[in-house]
Amino acid sequence: MSESDIDWVARSGKRAKGRRPEYFADPAVDRLTSILMALVGEVSALRERLDTVERLLEAKNAISREDIEAYAPDREAGAERGLATKAFVARVLRAVQQEAEAIEANDPPIEHWVEELGRKEQPCPPTSS
């Protein structure tokens, strides 16, 4: 595999023409979200690489980097790894998923229950209207 002559690292990160939408009030949050998601992607790739090493070592005692680069999971291993990645994404984005659930549930704030359960008298039954 020969490397190309251009500065491929710099060129790959080129910005797409067109102004980027701002998603958050503070632009720093936009930037940090991008940085965080890039990092999350790298952790995922790292986990997958470790999985590859483990699977290769299960099959033979010594492996090379070439073995790792050439590894392609069969259907079963592919499904196992896909599931692991799916579970990983679900752990990282738990906050987003639970916010979706919270909007649906529309719970009262905890203060409501603190007050409710701390009250000695029975609250008046709501007057039916």
Binding site: V40, G41, S44, A45, L46, E48, R49, Y71
Partner: peptide, 9 residues
């Protein structure tokens, strides 16, 4: 390997 893994992610 890792490039493919990034797409899997």
């Amino acid at each position: 390997h890792d490039e493919a893994a990034r797409f899997n992610f």
